[in-house]
Lab assay of single mutants.
Amino acid sequence: MTFKLIINGKTLKGETTTEAVDAATAEKVFKQYFNDNGIDGEWTYDDATKTFTITE
């Protein structure tokens, strides 16, 4: 399955996707992406659209 990440950061904005077997696996991938890029904020997940959103 394809999961999308929408980034609404102070310095970084955009979208990316990842292929994962489930939302929990995608969450781990995206959290690592947050850490690697110094993004910290509030994030949500919409199961209907398989979209994670992080807002700094």
Rank of each mutant, 00 (worst) to 15 (best):
I54F: 15
K50Y: 07
K50F: 08
G9C: 15
A20V: 03
I6P: 00
F30R: 00
V21C: 09
E56M: 12
F3H: 03
E56K: 04
A48E: 11
M1Q: 09
E19K: 12
E19R: 14
I39R: 05
K4Y: 15
K10H: 12
E19T: 14
I39C: 10
K31E: 04
G38H: 12
I7A: 02
L12S: 08
T25N: 06
T25G: 07
T53N: 03
L5A: 10
N8D: 09
G41C: 09
G41F: 15
E15N: 06
D22E: 02
K13Y: 11
N8G: 03
T16I: 15
I7D: 01
K13D: 04
I6F: 04
F52V: 01
D36L: 12
W43M: 13
Y45R: 00
Y45C: 00
L12T: 10
T53L: 05
V21D: 08
A26V: 02
T55N: 08
D36K: 09
K50G: 04
F34W: 11
E15Q: 10
T17Q: 09
A20E: 03
M1N: 10
Y33K: 06
T11A: 08
G38Y: 12
G9R: 05
D36C: 10
V29M: 10
N37E: 09
E56H: 07
K28I: 10
N35G: 12
F3A: 03
Y33D: 02
K31Q: 07
N37D: 06
I39D: 03
T55K: 04
I7H: 03
L5P: 02
T53P: 00
D46E: 06
L5T: 03
E42A: 10
A24R: 09
N35A: 14
Y33M: 13
E56I: 15
T11K: 10
F34T: 15
I54C: 06
T16C: 15
D40I: 14
D22P: 01
F34H: 04
T53S: 05
F3C: 05
N37V: 14
I7W: 10
T16N: 05
E19N: 12
K10Y: 10
A20K: 02
K28A: 12
D40T: 13
A24T: 08
A48C: 08
T17H: 10
G9A: 09
D36I: 11
Q32I: 06
D46G: 00
T44I: 07
K50I: 02
K13R: 11
M1P: 13
D22L: 01
A23V: 09
D46P: 00
K13T: 11
D47V: 08
K10A: 12
D40R: 13
V29S: 04
A20T: 04
K28V: 08
T55H: 07
K10W: 09
T17W: 13
T55V: 08
F30Q: 00
D46K: 02
K31N: 03
V29T: 08
T51C: 03
G38P: 11
E56T: 12
D36T: 09
T44V: 09
T2G: 03
G14Y: 15
T16V: 15
D46A: 03
T16D: 04
T44Q: 08
A23Y: 11
T17P: 01
F3G: 02
G9N: 05
Q32L: 09
N35I: 14
E19L: 13
G9P: 02
G38E: 13
G41V: 11
L12R: 11
Q32D: 07
G9F: 15
